[in-house]
């Protein structure tokens, strides 16, 4: 560094900024100015915007959840007697033994969405879309009266008494008209076969009538209702049965079937074993 530079730098290093107020007085002046400012904090628009966005998102979430059915009504019937569930539009669900139903109406479009597990007969009032989801499929109502038996995906049956229903099972769409029925299990669909709506609708609670239906269908229904597991030779299950049965007394119903269809059975620890008669 040259002498001139050194002299300049030495001199500048000796400089001080002149005092005016002094630090303490400056602080007091600052506090006075601060207290003169409006006590209300400046409106923080980004924060307000974030709050508004948060509220909107929360409302949207509640709406989406409501539309998805999370707040749907639920009805269970754990008794043997059928229960009647009135829907807000006056449609009726006769909820049969050991069955449950969940329903909600969408705000957009007003679709009536039902989820069924078990068995129920529906009397649907005309109006917006009426859909029933059940183990193994989905049904859209185009008419008025029908029954769904679907305790599990293992087997189910739909009877249409009047009007028309469109059923989706295994990605197939089936149209059932009044007096037609369909049965299904995970590997097959049997449809349409005819039924007598008048006779079926007039049956007492827990009484069923089958017209040349395979034993598999009848025994599966009994087992699903009672939570039994079923073991039986195929050739016996393929036999057809015609007649009424009262399923509120399952052992009696199995006994009647055994005598009528000529087989023996063992019922132990919730396991129904069908065996060939000796």
């Amino acid at each position: 560094m040259s002498l001139e530079n050194e002299k300049i730098e030495k001199h500048i290093s000796s400089w001080r900024v002149p005092e005016s107020l002094g630090e303490q007085a400056a602080w007091e002046r600052l506090m006075a100015a601060q207290s003169r400012q409006k006590p209300v904090r400046k409106v923080d628009f980004p924060k307000l915007w974030q709050i508004a966005a948060g509220i909107t998102a929360a409302l949207l979430l509640v709406f989406v959840l409501a539309e998805s059915g999370i707040f749907a009504h639920r009805e269970h019937n754990n008794t043997l007697a059928a229960r009647t569930v009135w829907l807000p539009d006056s449609s009726l669900i006769h909820l049969k033994a050991y069955s449950s139903v969940k329903y909600h109406y969408q705000k957009i479009g007003g679709a009536r969405l039902i989820e069924l597990s078990g068995e129920a007969r529906f009397d649907v009032k005309k109006g917006n879309r009426f859909e029933v989801e059940f183990p193994g499929g989905r049904l859209e109502v185009l008419g008025t009266q029908f029954t769904i038996q679907a305790y599990s995906e293992a087997a189910g049956r739909i009877d249409c008494f009047s009007g028309t229903v469109s059923v989706r099972i295994h990605d197939q769409i089936l149209i059932l008209e009044g007096g037609q029925a369909v049965t299904f299990d995970p590997t097959s669909i049997d449809w349409p076969f005819n039924i007598d709506p008048e006779q079926k609708l007039n049956l007492p609670d827990n009484t069923y009538y089958w017209e040349r239906r395979p034993l598999k269908e009848i025994l599966t229904l009994i087992c699903q209702r009672e939570n039994y597991s079923l073991e039986a030779p195929d050739w016996i299950l393929q036999k057809n049965f015609t007649g009424p049965l009262q399923l509120d007394q399952p052992e009696q119903a199995i006994g009647i079937l055994a005598r009528a269809m000529n087989f023996d059975y063992q019922l132990q620890k919730d396991q129904l074993r069908i065996i060939e008669k000796r």
Binding site: V17, P18, S20, E23, A26, L30, A33, Q34
Partner: peptide, 30 residues
């Protein structure tokens, strides 16, 4: 306490105006 003097000096270095240095420093802290 930590930065008042440095900010006031800085404004003075820029402006050479003592009252501006005082006022602007106050504005900065407000």
């Amino acid at each position: 306490d930590e930065y008042y003097k440095a900010i006031r000096n800085f404004v003075y270095y820029l402006s050479g105006d003592l009252s501006l240095a005082d006022d602007l420093t106050q504005d900065v802290f407000l």
